[in-house]
């Protein structure tokens, strides 16, 4: 289990991580969520003892990373901006890694097959696409068959197929009883994979709770109705004492409503409906409300909007892509 105790990291006068304390629960996928610049990558580097904390500490199974003997057998990591040498083949990259931690060499071929790189195993990393690099990084993380896996924004820059592959892999790893700690700046990504959620902003802990609890607290579902006969509809709803609120463009919204029941009600009274659609308040919106004061960088139109579309699960019409760009108080 990874435990952080008052972890703090300062770069010059920039406080990147600010007294973080939390535990990464065993055997589930934990989403590590925060806007760009929140300190996710820094926290992960501190966990691996790559950067030294200004104060506080991290332990893995009650030990500091620096004293782990053959650490790849405990924890495998995919970090941002860590790479293989461009002139070395995928197989040789995994070979030196395996040798350094006395991992049986047959694991090299196993992980190559697992991430689908067998065919390019003897090609130099120079020619790899972003997705192939990511797969090689994941192969490195899996090499020692570790109980704990840590991925820093693994879906960044991947095509939809690659994203799906990583989601499935993370769930599968957790199903095998492994601990998966994965960072993202996209709530929608986490909602699909994570069972537990740790949210940070400006280096500080904002939330640490089960995903289900976050959803229950933050998702308000409603049903949107649109009709050319609003009077009749409002009468029908009033007769059943169903509370209704005006929605956008002359529509009506029934909070917590059941679309089947509302549809039947309208049919029974012969009311024509032009729209009957369930609405889910976006988790993305809830996440952004939570981190509103802690947003440091604003994603450009391209990045945010593009990704919202790619992932677009719970996103409300109009998307959080546009919302993301809205100027936020406290941002500089």
């Amino acid at each position: 289990m990874i435990e952080l105790h008052g972890l703090t990291k300062r770069y010059g006068d920039k406080l990147a991580v600010d007294s973080l304390s939390f535990q990464v629960p065993k055997g589930v996928v934990t989403g590590f969520l925060g806007p760009n610049g929140a300190g996710k990558s820094t926290t992960m580097r501190l966990i691996l003892d790559l950067d030294r904390p200004t104060s506080g500490s991290v332990t893995i199974d009650a030990k500091g990373y620096g004293v782990l003997k053959e650490p790849l057998k405990y924890i495998g990591a995919l970090l941002e901006a860590s790479a293989s040498h461009p002139g070395r083949t995928a197989r040789n990259h995994l070979l030196w890694l395996a040798q350094s931690n006395r991992i049986p060499l047959h694991r090299v071929d196993e992980v190559l097959a697992l991430v689908g790189l067998t065919e390019v195993a003897d090609k130099k990393a120079r020619g790899f696409s972003l997705g192939m690099h990511q797969r090689l990084g994941i192969a490195s993380a899996l090499l020692g068959d570790p109980e704990i896996l840590m991925f820093d924004e693994p879906v960044n820059g991947l095509d939809p197929e690659g994203i799906l592959w990583i989601r499935t892999l993370m769930k599968q790893l957790a199903a095998e009883g492994r601990t998966v700690f994965v960072s993202s700046h996209l709530m929608s990504e986490m909602a699909l994979t994570a069972e537990h959620l740790v949210v940070i902003g400006k280096g500080r802990l904002l939330a640490d709770l089960p995903m289900a609890e976050f959803i229950a607290r933050n998702s308000r579902s409603s049903v949107r109705l649109r009709t050319p006969h609003p009077e009749q509809l409002l009468d029908a709803l009033a007769a059943e004492s169903i509370p209704v609120e005006p929605g956008p463009q002359g529509s009506f919204e029934v909070a917590g409503g059941d679309p089947a029941r509302l549809g039947e009600l309208a049919a029974a009274r012969g009311i024509t409906l032009h729209e009957l659609s369930p609405q889910h308040a976006s988790l993305e919106e809830a996440f952004m409300r939570m981190t509103a004061d802690a947003v440091e960088y604003h994603a450009g139109p391209e990045g945010a909007a593009g990704q919202a579309e790619e992932h677009g699960t719970a996103a409300a019409p109009g998307g959080w892509g546009t919302d993301w760009r809205r100027t936020r108080k406290g941002a500089n």
Binding site: L48, L50, G66, V67, P71, L79, S82, A83, S84, H85
Partner: peptide, 13 residues
């Protein structure tokens, strides 16, 4: 190449 992080994660000593 940025491999230093992979190397140090493998051998933190």
């Amino acid at each position: 190449s940025g491999m230093i992080r992979v190397s140090l994660a493998a051998v933190p000593q």
